[in-house]
Computed example of a mutant assay.
Amino acid sequence: MIPEQFIELATQVDEVFFLIGVAILVIEIAEAWFKGSLKGKTWLEMLASASTQVPYLLLEATMMTALYFGLYVFSETVVSWHLPTTLPWIFLAVVIADLTYYWEHRIAHRVRILWTQHAVHHSSRDYNIVTAVRFGPLESLWSFIAHIPMVLVGFSPDVVLGSVILVQAYQTWLHTELIGKLGTLEWVLNTPSHHRVHHGCDNKYLDKNYGGILIIWDRMFGSFQVEEERPRYGLTTDFDSQNPVKVWFSELPGLWRDIKRAKSGRELWGRLFGPPGWKP
């Protein structure tokens, strides 16, 4: 398989998961309608989630396209060693991309400047399939940086990008309350049950279940939590806005206030790179 074929396959898989997401959305809306819980606020929340794709895709089409072009040039001109694109190596690339996603995701929860972007994904008090596309405008920039080591060890940028697409596409179906626990699959795969925990802001659920496709990373690195009672979704703060602009940039005003208040270089570092809520 040539790299271009793999990335085309990954894109097709992404489209399949998108259609699965659409089917889940239809069922979620129908269920809420029959239960009488389909309120105006629900629609506004879904629209706010979908609206995050506007700045996200705009930056994908400009800045991220330019960065990936540079990565292709770097791979061809600087990295003189290239791993084969046979199925075993592609499988390994997807596993490595999934492990990379685990750490990328975990770090984004613990470094405030990265959290300003990832918090957008967590800021909805509702939890439905539309939450899957709720992204911070610059969230893909950290993902890009985190996966550069894969290119340095010899994976083609197409294989790396295709692997990232697969890891992200898989997570689409996780954002729903329609699907309960899935028996033995819960031991290996990330499931809707595991991901509901990740979106919970209850103390027992905070900063748990970072996995993309596999949940084994959380079990290995001590961040696993089984779903017990239904999570309370959203942030630990009282953010509850459906204004698209406020959703896109919800964490930035607070960060800017803390930067202006910083009285030393050490405090500025802590405000930027310490965990959310860090204080001197």
Score class of each variant (00 low, 15 high):
Met1Gly: 14
Met1Tyr: 13
Thr11Pro: 12
Gln12Asp: 13
Glu15Ser: 15
Glu15Lys: 15
Phe17Ser: 08
Ile20Leu: 14
Val22Gly: 00
Val22Thr: 02
Val22His: 02
Ala23Trp: 04
Ile24Trp: 01
Ile24Cys: 02
Val26Thr: 09
Ile27Thr: 11
Glu31Gly: 08
Ala32Cys: 06
Leu38Arg: 04
Lys39Glu: 09
Lys39Ser: 12
Glu45Leu: 00
Glu45Cys: 00
Met46Asp: 07
Gln53Ser: 14
Pro55Met: 10
Leu58His: 03
Leu59Ile: 12
Ala61Met: 13
Thr62Gln: 05
Met64Thr: 08
Thr65Trp: 14
Thr65Ser: 13
Thr65Cys: 05
Leu67Asn: 03
Phe69Glu: 11
Phe69Pro: 09
Leu71Cys: 07
Val73His: 13
Ser75Lys: 08
Val78Asp: 11
Val79Ser: 04
Ser80Trp: 08
His82Asn: 14
His82Ala: 13
Pro84Val: 04
Thr85Val: 00
Ile90Cys: 05
Tyr101Thr: 04
Glu104Asn: 14
His109Trp: 05
Trp115Ile: 00
Thr116Tyr: 01
Val120Cys: 13
His122Gln: 08
His122Ile: 06
Arg125Thr: 00
Asp126Cys: 05
Tyr127Gln: 09
Asn128Val: 01
Val130Gln: 02
Ala132Pro: 04
Arg134Phe: 03
Gly136Lys: 12
Gly136Asp: 11
Leu138Tyr: 13
Leu138Phe: 15
Ser140Lys: 14
Ser143Asp: 11
Ile148Phe: 04
Ile148Tyr: 01
Val153Lys: 10
Gly154His: 05
Val160Glu: 03
Gly162Leu: 02
Ser163Asn: 05
Val164Thr: 08
Ile165Cys: 04
Tyr170Gln: 10
Gln171Gly: 15
Thr176Arg: 12
Glu177Phe: 10
Ile179Gln: 01
Lys181Ile: 09
Leu182Arg: 12
Gly183Leu: 11
Gly183Arg: 11
Leu185Tyr: 09
Glu186Lys: 15
Pro192Arg: 11
His194Ser: 13
His195Leu: 10
Arg196His: 06
His198Met: 08
His199Met: 10
Cys201Pro: 01
Lys208Ile: 08
Asn209Met: 07
Tyr210Phe: 15
Gly212Lys: 02
Leu214Val: 05
Ile215Met: 06
Met220Leu: 15
Gly222Ala: 13
Gly222Phe: 10
Ser223Ile: 05
Gln225Tyr: 07
Val226Pro: 02
Glu227His: 12
Tyr233Trp: 05
Gly234Arg: 08
Leu235His: 04
Phe239Tyr: 10
Phe239Asp: 02
Asp240Gly: 05
Ser241Pro: 04
Pro253Ile: 00
Gly254Pro: 02
Trp256Val: 14
Asp258Glu: 15
Ile259Ser: 08
Ile259Thr: 09
Ala262Arg: 08
Gly265Lys: 11
Glu267Pro: 12
Glu267Lys: 11
Trp269Asn: 09
Phe273Val: 01
Gly274Cys: 03
Pro276Ser: 01
Gly277Glu: 06
Lys279Thr: 14
